[in-house]
Computed example of a mutant assay.
Amino acid sequence: MSLVETRDAVRAKEVLLLDVGGLLVRPDPARIVAALGAGHAVTADSLDRALYCHGKVGAGLGPGDDDDDFVFRFVVAAGATPEQVRAAFQELRDIVLFSSWVPRDLTGDIAALRLIEVHLPHIALVTNSEGGAEEMVRRLGIAQVGPGEGMEVTAVIDSATLGVHKPDPEIFRLAAGLLGSTPDRCVCVGDSVRNDVDAARAAGVLPVHFDPYDDCPDRDGHLHVPSLAAFATWLQ
């Protein structure tokens, strides 16, 4: 399928199933840098790269796969030594696993979603969470169901509410049904190959990989976008 044919296939869909963690929000880089104290090489940029580059944290698996190991590998990949991570591990663990993440690009993402909505009129957030996803994105001003400060979306679908977690493909089938649609009418954009790309494809949903550093080695197996703004521009 050519790039134009792929774009036409995306335009023919009606629902965007959008990941949250790693795409719209990320672990708070300022808090991580502060927790490590002095003498480390970690920056906001190195943390961002560590979160998405396949050769570092591992194909964007993210929290939920092996939480403590994820935290350790994530911060080491960003430039801290193993000793520095161990010394601050409990605080780092709290920041990454149990504290609210922060928006990656609040203004840009909202603007992009409003452009994407022209082609994909039903947008739903689909995320692995412990039940607080809808309140979190509303509080951060990212999105909400109905009018509000952020992007108005059709639904916020939380794995804790459904009782199904990614990478189980059933979460995408259930999400499509809750929106009165079917998987073949949906597109999923997410940062994890395992949890978003592969799981969406297995459910019959067209996957788009959020790959901000053009790092995914599978260049031909699925569509890649570096940002929601680039995805919106491509759809135009």
Rank of each mutant, 00 (worst) to 15 (best):
S2G: 15
L3D: 14
E5S: 10
R7P: 00
R11Y: 01
R11S: 05
L18W: 09
L18K: 07
D19F: 07
I32C: 06
I32R: 09
A38F: 06
A41K: 15
A41D: 15
S46A: 10
L47G: 06
D48M: 13
D48N: 11
Y52N: 01
H54D: 15
G55Q: 13
V57L: 13
A59P: 00
P63Y: 14
D67W: 08
D67Q: 05
D68E: 14
F70L: 03
V71P: 08
F74N: 06
A78E: 08
G79Y: 06
G79I: 04
P82Q: 08
E83N: 08
Q84L: 04
Q84T: 03
V85S: 09
R86N: 06
R86A: 15
A87N: 11
V96E: 08
V96W: 07
F98S: 10
S100W: 14
P103E: 06
R104A: 05
L106S: 02
T107P: 01
D109C: 05
I110Q: 12
L113Y: 10
E117R: 15
L120Q: 00
P121L: 05
S129W: 13
E130Y: 11
G131H: 11
I142K: 04
I142E: 08
I142R: 08
V145R: 14
G148T: 05
E152D: 14
E152A: 15
T154V: 07
T154C: 06
K166E: 12
P167T: 06
D168G: 07
D168H: 12
F172Q: 06
R173G: 05
G177C: 01
G180I: 00
G180S: 03
G180K: 04
P183D: 03
R185I: 02
C188K: 13
G190L: 02
D198G: 00
A202Y: 01
P207K: 09
P212H: 08
Y213V: 04
D215K: 05
G221I: 01
L223W: 13
H224D: 00
S227M: 00
L228P: 00
